[in-house]
Amino acid sequence: MIQFKNFSAAFGERKILQELTFSLPANSITSIIGASGSGKTTLLRVLCRMNDRIENFRIEGSVFVDGMDVYRPGTDVYALRRKVGMIFQKPCVFPKNIIDNVIFGVRKKISKKDYPDVAEKVLREVFLWEEVKDRLGEKATTLSQGQQQRLTLARTLAVGPEVLLMDEPTSSLDPKSTAAIEKLVQSLKNRHTILWVTHQHDQAQSIADQVLVIEKGQVLPLSVPIVRPAKPASFTSVLQNVQGYPE
């Protein structure tokens, strides 16, 4: 599904990723861990060409998403970004109401009468529907950080991506919201290929099918198989208090 072939990336002379060659299977969760500045975020961003606006960003080699050469001249970068959605460290909601935020990426692609149905579907998918169904007209900025992060995920899911790139999505969240996002990601695995950047080794171990360790722009040998705890007790107790979860 995702394949790097001799892929290097640099900002000017400063090399960030070096000669990466590896593949990641579809419909799996891959955690990416590594020290700050090791190239984790850059690794995610090249998959949807988020660094195109940066003047001195250079790449060598190839990276493929579902057979599509991401950096081949002529690649439809907008179609690529709809196929490869990205969730950022801090949730970024637009200063609009909740429903407008959810349908922001598909507003011109669906008819107005379908807005409520699409919004409800993806809000249910991220377990946010029960919490916001009576306040869809309120500003999204009134939601908590954890809710905003789930809202940005719903907004991304509405576009219909096959790959989800998550750049430390829980780093600014409290434990309850973190658990909510982790649970949510597990539920999305069957339909999406997920890459999750984190600094927390225990989180990486508990949610991922494989863990990728990056150091100085290079991938260290994969630490598979993962020994996953049968049920993370600390999270379970938290999750029982999260509204909107299916039993």
Partner: peptide, 16 residues
Amino acid sequence: EKYREAGMALGLSRPA
């Protein structure tokens, strides 16, 4: 910049 990046990540074209 986060607004631009959020728009980019949703696959919005530059005019959009």
